[in-house]
Simulated assay, not measured.
Amino acid sequence: MKLKYIYHSGFLIEFDEKNIIFDYYKGDIPYIDSEKKLYVVSTHSHRDHFNENIFEMFKDFKNAKYLLSDDIEIEEREAICFLEGRKKYCIDDLEIETFESTDLGIAILITTEGKTIYHGGDLNWWTWHGYETQEEYDSMTERFFNEMKLLKNREIDLAMVALDPRQGDRYDWGLKYFIESTKTKYIAPMHLWDKYEFIDKFKEDNKELLEDIEIIDTHKTAANHFEI
C-alpha cells in the first residue's frame, strides 16, 4: 500500500488491485492506472473537501465509483454510493464503517486487501479558546468523545487525521486523543492549511505519545510516496 498526498485533506492510496482517492478538491493528481478499480471518496460537501469536477476528471476510468457523504447534493447516477454516518457497508471488496463528523458529513474506515485505513474528514475536536461558550465547548467535546468511543482500540494501519493550526494551542487535541483511543501504526496529518511545520511541532510536543507510532511528513509524499 502506497500513500501519496495531493493537497489539504486529499490523498491517493494505491493498493495492488485498486486505488482510493480521499477528499480531492484541488491539486495535481498523481498518475493513476486507469485499468484498476478507482474509488473516489468525499467525506462532506465543504469546498475544501469536495470538487464536483471529479466526475469529469475520472470519466475515462473503466471501473470508477464515487463514495460520497449523503450531505453532498448532486444528481444520482449509477456509479455513486451515498454514505450516512454510523453505518456499515460492503461495496465490492471494501468493508466500510462510517462515523458522524463533529462538523459536516462523515469520517470513514475502510478495510481492503488486508489493510485498514481511516480518513477523518472533519471529525475533530473543534474547540477554539476564547471563541466559544462553555455550552458550545461541552457539546463539541461530548460529540467528539462519542465518536472516539466507537473507534476505541481499533487496529488501524494508516489514519489521515486533522491537525489544524487555526486552533492555536489546541491544534493537536483531536489528533492526540485519536492516537490515545486507537491502535494506529501510521498517521498522516492533514487539514494544515499549508502550515506543514506544525507536523514537526506535533512530533516535538508529543514525543512520549509517539514512541510506537510513525508520523508521516505528509507534504513530502506528494512528489514521491510513502509505502506501508
Rank of each mutant, 00 (worst) to 15 (best):
Y177A: 06
P30T: 12
K88Y: 04
S9E: 10
V161I: 15
I74M: 08
Y66R: 06
E14S: 15
G121E: 06
K2L: 03
L192E: 00
K87A: 10
G27H: 06
F145D: 15
L192R: 02
A222G: 01
A162P: 15
T116G: 12
Y25N: 09
N19A: 08
D16M: 09
E211Q: 12
K207W: 11
E52I: 14
I91M: 12
V41K: 11
T102E: 00
K195L: 13
W193P: 00
T127V: 15
G120F: 02
F15W: 04
N19F: 13
R154N: 13
N124E: 06
T112M: 00
K62H: 12
K2H: 07
D169G: 02
F198G: 01
E204D: 15
D157I: 02
D48P: 04
A159H: 05
I13Q: 01
K65M: 09
R170E: 13
I72S: 07
A79S: 15
Y24V: 04
D200L: 08
Y137F: 15
G27W: 08
H49R: 03
A188Y: 00
T116H: 02
M140R: 14
D92P: 08
F82D: 01
G121I: 12
L175Y: 01
L209M: 11
T218G: 07
P189R: 02
F58A: 02
V41H: 05
I74P: 03
A162S: 15
T112G: 08
E211M: 03
L94R: 08
I215F: 03
H219C: 10
N124S: 09
E142W: 11
N153S: 15
D71K: 11
K183N: 15
F22R: 04
Y131T: 02
F61A: 11
E132T: 07
F55T: 14
I110E: 03
Y66D: 06
M1C: 05
S181R: 10
D28G: 13
T218L: 07
K18E: 07
K4E: 09
W128R: 09
